[in-house]
Design a protein around this nucleic acid. Structure first.
Lengths: 152, 152
DNA sequence: ATTATATTGTTAAATCTCTAACTAGTTTGA
DNA sequence: TCAAACTAGTTAGAGATTTAACAATATAAT
């Protein structure tokens, strides 16, 4: 009999993700998705002028998925996409001023929910949990590149 | 500035969920989804003869979502749905023999992947992580029932 | 009893993510 | 140099999940 602890852990993780995403999205501006915010935040923190594929890799989603996300962000004027001057296949993704503002607004709106969380859990609780989660993530990520790894 | 540890943790959880789900699904029989397996497993472990709404609550998904899942399972002959004899609104969900077999087969197929995980991580690693995850899940779950809680 | 409120389950529309398949450039290597 | 193999990005199709809105039944309250 396989360890039920593993199932249980993955199950909890799945539900947490579901609940947190829903809660998150309900707080975000307009029809903004968690994935949209994540990309904006990523570009602010690590710098923009990145290719779609590199962003997809960073979030470990498929390229078609990131194509979708970027197209939505572009349609809202939150990012700007230009051809890569060096690599004819690639595109470069830049933040617009509106994109930066939207990211700031999203963070401001997230504030209260984070406060509540911080009131209920200490930063140490999260810090204590992180190493295991990172290790698990890294393992699954490495695993992924083994068999018929598809369209990334 | 809000604790980035919180963001980081939720981010890791999101990616783990994504990678684990995809890996999971690739191993499951046919076009079986993780959510389908979860419901079958739930019914085997806790007993069938349950209403759709109660199953939806157990997994913390919306009713329409569970309607979809149950309809797919029923279309494959893995569960059987009958009207509730007492409550005219409700339906009762039962496992079929095929459903039980499918659940067993899924678990068998999951085996190797779980083995690998168990080789890389000890059961104690998971046991150590669980309390925090459960607490977090419970908190988010309780939070959910506060504002404009919709269609559950 | 009757009315108001809550619960069960479904349909519809929107969006996400995935896999499969394809186009177009780039690198590698014989 | 040139073909093979790889990488960037898109399109198309399928299924999941959410919110909104409803129909039908049950429960509570007056």
């Amino acid at each position: 009999m396989a360890d039920p602890v593993i199932f249980e852990t993955l199950n909890e993780i799945g539900i947490i993700n579901q609940l947190a995403s829903t809660k998150f999205r309900n707080v975000l501006p307009d029809g903004m998705e968690v994935s949209h915010f994540s990309v904006l935040n990523h570009l602010v923190r690590l710098g923009d002028d990145r290719t779609l594929a590199s962003i997809a890799r960073a979030f470990q989603v498929t390229k078609p998925s990131m194509t979708n996300t970027i197209q939505r962000l572009e349609a809202r004027g939150l990012v700007q996409v230009t051809p890569d001057p060096v690599d004819g296949r690639a595109k470069r993704v830049f933040l617009t001023q509106a994109g930066r503002m939207m990211r700031d607004e999203a963070i401001a709106r997230l504030g209260p929910a984070i406060e509540e969380l911080a009131a209920e859990f200490s930063a140490d609780d999260f810090k204590a949990a992180l190493p295991f989660l990172k290790r698990l993530r890294a393992y699954l990520d490495a695993e992924r590149d083994r068999p018929g790894s598809p369209n990334r």
